[in-house]
Design a binder for these strands. Structure first.
Lengths: 131, 131
DNA sequence: GTACAACTTCGAGTTGACTCTAAGTCAAGA
DNA sequence: TCTTGACTTAGAGTCAACTCGAAGTTGTAC
């Protein structure tokens, strides 16, 4: 049966978000996700909105925001538009850390390229000796 | 006494590398750093070469290379020029992960800016209501 | 000569973020 | 009906990377 589902099971949610079912339940348990809707049998059903939120939170996670801070961010969302200013402030702070990370990665990239060149030179010298 | 020291104490090494003295000793203990030279009293003395290596390893760390992989990298350095090819391979692999991280950060940056704009719009609407 | 601070080792404890297990419920298929 | 497999909860276990504490040594400052 190819149900046109507007909501996803936990397996499907895991598949589309790249998290595991364990992690999805864990996130909900620690209050990082608002309680997810349930089917008649008690099983979780993830709405498209849930999925979008999870994708967003996952981006914050993967760029170094802690679970505690993300928790706070979600609380702000739940509290409604009145918290828009505070949410903006959080994102502006996170923006700074993202920019700093990019700078560090850029510097590291240059170091890597420099060292790769060094190692390549050494390898070429070794080839010459053999020849 | 302003000694012109060519080598640094563990405190000084911590200060210039941004690591803690605990972490410096920990790194040495797990074999991530080759044994550091000692003064007559048994205290560690970090040479400029040690400091340079620590700075480099710290870059690999802060861009996501695991301690186990860094350990391996240091072993290769200790083994000399013969390992240049393997070191180059490691750095080429790490280069890939660094580039991927940068891409992810860039995407996240765009999402952050989009959301900051959203929140700013909401805040402006709230100002209008008050006025 | 004794207090003090900085060092030493070794092992234990902590933190953040999962990850897994046990025990149980429930619906669909053979 | 019985098995199978996905789901549920609560709590325990794991892992990487530190981080700290205890007990002891040493070198300068008063």
């Amino acid at each position: 049966m190819d149900t046109i589902h507007t909501s996803l099971t936990i397996q499907e949610a895991a598949a589309t978000t790249g998290l595991t079912v364990h992690t999805l339940r864990y996130y909900e348990r620690i209050g990082l996700l608002m309680p997810i809707g349930r089917a008649a049998n008690g099983h979780r059903r993830y709405s498209q909105q849930d999925i979008n939120l999870i994708r967003t939170l996952n981006r914050w996670r993967q760029t170094g925001m802690s679970l505690v801070d993300i928790q706070h961010y979600v609380k702000l969302i739940e509290a409604g538009d009145i918290t828009a200013g505070e949410r903006r402030a959080m994102l502006e702070a996170h923006r700074e850390t993202v920019v700093r990370q990019m700078e560090e990665l850029q510097t590291t990239l240059e170091l890597i390229d420099y060292k790769i060149q060094n190692y390549t030179d050494i390898e070429e010298k070794q080839e010459q000796v053999k020849a």
